[in-house]
Design a protein around this nucleic acid. Sequence first.
DNA 1: ATTCCACAGGAAACAGTGGTCC
DNA 2: GGACCACTGTTTCCTGTGGAAT
Length: 411
Amino acid sequence: MSTTVTDPIDRLLDAAQSGKSLIKNRDVLHFTHIPDLILHRDPEQEQLTQSLIPILMNSRPSNLLVYGKTGTGKTLVIQKVLSKIQKRVEEGSFPIKLAYTNAKQETTLYGLLVSFGRQLGLSGQKTNDEKMWLPSTGLSISEVFNRILYVISKHETNAVFVIDEIDYLAELIQKTGKDVLYQITRANERLETGSLTLIGVSNDLTFKERLDPRVISSLSEEEVVFTNYNLNQIKQILNARIQVAFSEGIVEDAALNLCSAMASRESGDARRAIDLLRVAAEIAERTQSAKINEEHVRKASQKIEENKEIVALKSYPLHEKLLILAVMKSSEISTGETYMTYKALCKEIRQKELTQRRVTQMLSEIEMSGIISGRIVHQGTHGNTKKFKITISPDIIKETFKDELALQDIL
DNA sequence: ATTCCACAGGAAACAGTGGTCC
DNA sequence: GGACCACTGTTTCCTGTGGAAT
C-alpha cells in the first residue's frame, strides 16, 4: 500500500535524502568557506604575498595593516596566502605558525593574548615546563607575553599574528593604558630565535589615530586596502557560487540581480549577498518551489533582519530587557520617564533597581544596537532629555521574552 | 543676559569573582 | 594564606548642554 506524503517536514526530508534537494552544495553558500571562490582580489593577494615573502627567506617580514569593509574577503585572502607560504616552507626546518584572533570577540587583552598563546602550543594545564603553561587567568599581562615569546623562541617558530578588527584592540589599549600592540611590534628585538609578525585587519581606516605613534610607525610598514565590491563584481561572485551550489537554471536572473543590488547598496558586502542567497534558497526549498525568485530574496532579507533582532533581544541581561519593556510601554518616552517605569517593573518582579546613571548607559547601549531609537529634545526650562521609542515590532519583543521566567508576570 | 531644568556622559572608585604566585 | 592580577558591573561624583523663562 502506498501512502501520499503530505507533511512538509517529511517532504523536505524525503527530497534531501533522495538527493533532489534544491541546494547541491551547501558549503559554498557560506562566505567564509572555500577561499578559492574569492574573486577580483589578485592585486591584494600579490601585495600581501610580497610583504610576507621574507618568511621564506628566513628573515622577518614587515608588519602590515589590511583595510577593508565587511565582506570584502580580507580574512579569506590572508588565509589563502599564508597557507600557500606555509606549504612552501620545508616541514620542521623553520615552521610558520599562523595564529588568528578577533579583537571584537576577545573582549580583554588577557583573553586575546591567551588565544594567541594557545594557538602557539601553550597548554591550559600544568606541564613539566612551567613556562609552557598558560592559565586562563591570574597572570599579569607581561608574564603572558613573556610565555608567548618563550614558546616562539623554543620552537624557533615564525609566528604570524592576525588580529581581526584590530580597532577594538586599539580601544582596549586606550582604556587600560597597557600597550600590548607596542610589545608585539617590538617583540623581534627580544627574540633571538624565531620571529613575530603582526597583520592587523580593520574595517576602520581612521583607527590608527588612536594608536601610539611608535606603534603606527612599525605597524604601517605595509598597507593593503581592499576596496568595496561593485554591483558587477558581486554578481560575478554570486554567479561563481551559484554554479557550484545549484543545478543549472535554479536561480532566476531577477533573483540574482536583486541579491546583488541589495548587497551592493549596503557597501559592497559579498558576505551579505551570499547569506541572502542561502536564506532565499532555504525559503524556496521549504515552500517546495522549483526555482529561486525575487520574492524568495525579499523574504530572505526580511528574515535575516528579524533573526538579527531576535538574537540581540535574547542576548540582553534582565535589566536591559526590563528597559526595553519600559520603552515599549509608550509611543515615545523620556529618559526620566523610562527610569520611573523601569523602577515600577523592578518592584513588580521584586528585583533591586539599578541607578539612573547605569540605566542611562544601558539605554545608550540598547540604542546602539538599533532596537530602540532616541532623539535629544531640548525643553527649555524643563531641561534636556532624550526621547526613546521602539524600532521593532512589540510582538517580536513579547514573543522573544515570553520564555524568560522572571518576565512572565509583566508580559 | 542670566537662570533654570533634566538630563548626558566622563572619570574614578568600589565590590566581587576567579585565578596565580610566593 | 595573603598579596597580587585582570576583569566586569556598578555606584558616586561631577561637569557640560541648550533653549525657554525670567
